[in-house]
Amino acid sequence: MTDRTDARRRTFLDLERPDHAHLSAFLRADGHLTEQSRNRGRLTVGLPARAAPILEEFQRLCPYNGSIRHRTRDTHSKAEYTSAVWTVCARGFREELQALGLPAGRQSETVVPPTVPFSERDYARGLVDADGSVGRTRRTSRS
């Protein structure tokens, strides 16, 4: 890989592009970034198998190699739950995500907007898509 290609890949996310802003927010809300020794680590995003097309679109958008695998297991709420998991191990991608605010390890409870110019509408859409829904619950009181 040439230095030019490496530099281009390290900064491929342009958050003013709608698809990049959507991807960034989705990863910020639903992605998990791990770091290990010797510059190893990975980004993983797991969704129900029926949502695999979202992961396939992200994989198409990302210039780094990654894989999507399916896993079936019993969970506490459902027997034979099948999920799709997108994994990218590329160090440059992980570094770029961290520079944009995605922490490695346990996610914080707050999602802060990027500090660079970004497509606000598409960033918000990515947060909603990752979380599944936005809504309120009605608290009823007994009289």
Rank of each mutant, 00 (worst) to 15 (best):
E96M: 08
E96R: 11
A90L: 01
A84M: 01
P114L: 08
E56L: 05
T72Y: 01
P114R: 08
S83R: 07
A84W: 01
E95G: 02
V85D: 05
F118Q: 04
Y64M: 05
R125P: 10
A104F: 08
R40G: 06
V88T: 02
H32S: 00
E16L: 08
W86M: 09
A130N: 14
R40M: 10
G92R: 10
P117N: 06
F118A: 02
A52H: 01
C62G: 03
L43D: 01
D131N: 15
I54H: 07
T110N: 07
W86Q: 06
Q36Y: 12
T34M: 05
A84Q: 07
L23M: 10
R10P: 00
C89Q: 09
V111T: 14
D19L: 02
P53T: 11
Y81C: 00
D30K: 14
S108Y: 11
E96S: 04
L100Y: 08
K78P: 00
S83V: 02
G92K: 08
A124W: 15
R40A: 09
V45P: 00
P53Y: 11
E35R: 14
N65D: 10
S119P: 01
D129S: 13
G66K: 02
I68Y: 00
A29P: 02
D19Q: 03
R73T: 07
G101C: 00
R69E: 10
R4Q: 10
D122N: 15
L27F: 09
M1L: 12
G135S: 05
G92C: 07
G31V: 05
R42W: 02
G101I: 09
R71L: 05
G132R: 12
D131F: 14
H76S: 12
S143W: 14
A84C: 05
S141F: 15
H70Y: 13
R71N: 03
K78R: 14
H32V: 08
R9Y: 06
R142T: 14
D19I: 03
G92Y: 02
G46H: 04
T34L: 05
L100T: 04
F58E: 04
S133G: 04
T137D: 02
H70E: 00
R91D: 06
S37P: 12
E80C: 02
P114Y: 08
A130H: 12
E109D: 15
L61T: 10
L13H: 06
R142W: 07
D19C: 04
R9P: 00
D74I: 01
L13I: 09
T72W: 01
R40D: 09
S119Q: 12
R9S: 08
D3K: 14
T115M: 08
V134Q: 13
G92S: 13
S37N: 13
D122Y: 15
R139W: 12
H76D: 12
P113T: 15
R40C: 03
D74M: 02
R121E: 15
S133R: 15
L47D: 06
L97G: 03
A130C: 14
T5C: 04
R142I: 13
F26L: 13
I68G: 05
T72H: 00
A29R: 13
R139S: 11
G92D: 15
Q59E: 07
T34D: 06
R121N: 13
L100W: 02
R121P: 10
R69C: 07
G101T: 03
S24N: 08
D14V: 06
L100P: 04
F93C: 03
M1V: 14
H32N: 07
T110F: 03
R91P: 01
R94M: 01
G92M: 04
D74S: 02
E120R: 15
A29C: 10
L102M: 09
H76A: 14
